[in-house]
Design a protein around this nucleic acid. Structure first.
Lengths: 105, 105
DNA sequence: TGAATATATGAACAGGTATTCATATAATAA
DNA sequence: TTATTATATGAATACCTGTTCATATATTCA
């Protein structure tokens, strides 16, 4: 009965989840991280290979890989001194694909 | 034949597109904008209504709505002094849904 | 026209974060 | 063990951006 509909609750998402969502998209919202994800979308790569591909400092890549790890977007496999990174699952790809759909329409 | 596979070109996305992608996800990577998008997901709302719902300054909402407009994520309809905002299309919802899938798994 | 209301926007400030350097940790080989 | 290579990380810096205030623009009504 209020003049402004402040209690609209149709089918909307819990506030707390929305903050988590923003945090997730924040991870996708950095060009270095997106380029890393694209690079390891089809085959795993070691940290040094990623750095070489993107022509960036190894420490920069490691810092960003940590962010991706913390958000469960990548998985790792150790092989001797090297650590190989790959996308954690296919729906990381799906998120990227959805973004592409918007851009390329 | 190089020791490091720098010329990997499987099925990957053009570099320039990747930067655009990051910029797009950057828009989703802010809690205020995500909350706005969630709010107008099912029905259009005027700026003042959005501000009231989120309990934030009108200018803050306007600034963020501009970002959403510039990225073609919302559409507007003028009705007298008020301007109603709605999500531009359903695949904005899909992007959000993909993010939810990742969080809620 | 002028007053009232709704929205937009420029400028400034504060908080956050991506990058880099230097260094630490970890694994391998000799 | 020591040397070498690969990766991780703490600290510092510089840049970016979300919010706010003040004000401008736009629409309606009297």
């Amino acid at each position: 009965m209020s003049d402004i509909n402040v209690t609209n609750n149709d089918c909307q998402i819990d506030e707390e989840i929305l903050f988590e969502l923003a945090d997730l998209f924040k991870v996708f919202g950095d060009s270095t991280r997106i380029r890393i994800m694209n690079l390891i979308a089809d085959n795993e790569l070691a940290v040094s290979q990623i750095a070489a591909n993107l022509n960036m400092e190894q420490s920069t890549i490691s810092q960003q890989l940590r962010v991706l790890r913390q958000n469960k977007l990548v998985r790792i496999r150790r092989e001797g001194k090297q650590i190989f990174y790959a996308l954690n699952d296919d729906h990381v790809k799906k998120i990227i694909q959805m973004g592409l759909d918007h851009i390329l329409e």
